[in-house]
Write a protein that binds this DNA or RNA. Sequence first.
DNA 1: TAATGTTTTGAAATCGATTGCGTACATAGA
DNA 2: TCTATGTACGCAATCGATTTCAAAACATTA
Lengths: 343, 343
Amino acid sequence: MKLGQATIKDIARELNLSASTISRALKDYHGISDETKRKVKEMAEKLNYRPNAIALSLRQSRSFTIGVIIPEVVHFFFSTVISGIEEIANSRGYNVILAQSNEKLAREISTIETMLSNQIDGVLVSYSKETKTFDHFTKLLDHGFPIVFFDRAPAIPGAINVMVDDYQGSFDATAHLISQGYKNIVHLAGPKTLKISIDREKGYKDALLKNGLDVNPAYIISCPLGTLEESKDLVSELLISLPDRPDAFFSCNDIGAVGAMMACRDAGLKIPLEVGIVGFSDWQFCSMLQPQLSSVAQPGFLMGARATEILIDIIEKKLDPKTMEQSLILETKLMERGSSKRF
Amino acid sequence: MKLGQATIKDIARELNLSASTISRALKDYHGISDETKRKVKEMAEKLNYRPNAIALSLRQSRSFTIGVIIPEVVHFFFSTVISGIEEIANSRGYNVILAQSNEKLAREISTIETMLSNQIDGVLVSYSKETKTFDHFTKLLDHGFPIVFFDRAPAIPGAINVMVDDYQGSFDATAHLISQGYKNIVHLAGPKTLKISIDREKGYKDALLKNGLDVNPAYIISCPLGTLEESKDLVSELLISLPDRPDAFFSCNDIGAVGAMMACRDAGLKIPLEVGIVGFSDWQFCSMLQPQLSSVAQPGFLMGARATEILIDIIEKKLDPKTMEQSLILETKLMERGSSKRF
DNA sequence: TAATGTTTTGAAATCGATTGCGTACATAGA
DNA sequence: TCTATGTACGCAATCGATTTCAAAACATTA
């Protein structure tokens, strides 16, 4: 061992005892004399003994490690989720192995393989945008391997999901815009491969209908990339092309909302007077913009924490994925700010 | 095994061969007939065999896992660093175990312990603000355990560090403000416990002196918290209290710069006409502000990537920490944007 | 003193994969 | 026919800790 790490055998040799005795003494098993226990512990301390978790993992087929697969780390929301995961995992004695899929299916699959090789006890997954089939997950679920999905919930019957209430958040945001007197509300929608995109679009539509407004398909704009430039360009064009100029934009993410904001400003439109804008996620920067961007806040830390608690409960058989609630839906909170408040 | 995972023994049993033969066949060792190799690989495929990395780790005292200890994940800069780490580690066949110290020394220490128990091959560390003694690191370094520090470099002789050139970045930013004709440049400084704060302040001072301006202690404002409110309040007060009104602010971080921006706007000052502002880190939101915030870009991804390359090279003995360059200093890049460009 | 019970400890197997060494067999050369 | 060389494979030890099964060592009782 690189560190000259002491093992149980070293302690045994020093004290002229057997390895089994050392093991038992360290764990305060019955049938070991107090005198021996004392000596063993003393020697362990002296040799700076640290149990080899790898050996334990091998023996028990348990690694006290959970895997986290996330599309990308550099994303405010995901980083808060990771923080929540790390916090709970740590407090319950688990390690966190992290891997990002970079939104690539191939990498998602290879990552899972590697993690399984490393005998992780369970995995938390937010799948990639490329992922359209879920065999690599169902195969594991069928064998009873603990998986909890967060944020992005796959179409797998029986899978455990922790999500935010995208529908309601979206509904609230749209209803808020309506209440502020905006009428031609455009929705900048995300990729249809993600359930969250679909839910957010549905919340938008329902809010319109519920308030007696029509759903105009021309007002639902697909933003597959999710970049600032994309939404900026699309909105700029929209402001010219549409017969009835849009007077509000509800974007499925904050970046898109900023793009819309820029496009409107470039077009000489006053925010929030002439155009209202609401984003989704409530990234840090929302309150730094001028005007401040209204947005739907997602409880990222809480999501990570709750997902981890559930996963570990399943691992430790405190929960049974077969009988438990399959989805945990966390509430969002609309942060009404300057970009959408006329009154 | 939970997954009914096939082992080498299972393959051996199926084919009436010994475990050693299976192992060798799978690795294409000489001395195994092609026929046998074929059959073994076929059966491995059929049984969905996956080598048990834990068993390997135990045998080789190598886990192909590196630890990452970071003050906090929810931090744009650190998340880009993590991304770089993950990218390189992955490509070189290593797993990444992540833990955040939450800026607590105690947690930093216990985290290291856990990671060592898990036989990590090396660790990447950005130490906490609380950390003032480094015994827990030197102890390991003395035993030849691979550690690479990033961003925050400890006062440990012989330690390998990967940092950005805070001094130069700061110097450039200040020089830029001067070149734009600003004369009364205030520096919003960070906590003195971090070397990066000191370096940034020094860069600011030297840039002033080099350009024939005086260093006025009243123009160096300590912002220990690093929050938006803190800097906003301090700047608001400053704009009134100082005899010569400041006409530029160079903040040691972006958040502080935004606070300054807000305070100036509240005071009715035009940016960049009457006041110039430059931040440090170049967070995503800088280019979303109005006007866009000039900032010193730190190569986070690159820092993570380079630190990981060095660490793995040390682990794999391709580099010797005793003889190699001890510090890798990465260049910053000043992003000149609307908040500081008058001409 | 022998039998029995209690306390304390050890030998060996186990987890999964690797590897040094040994063996069985075939073929070639002398 | 006997030795030398090579091919193809198995045995057993190893990594570190745990745990089952037993065996000692000792005390207690009849």
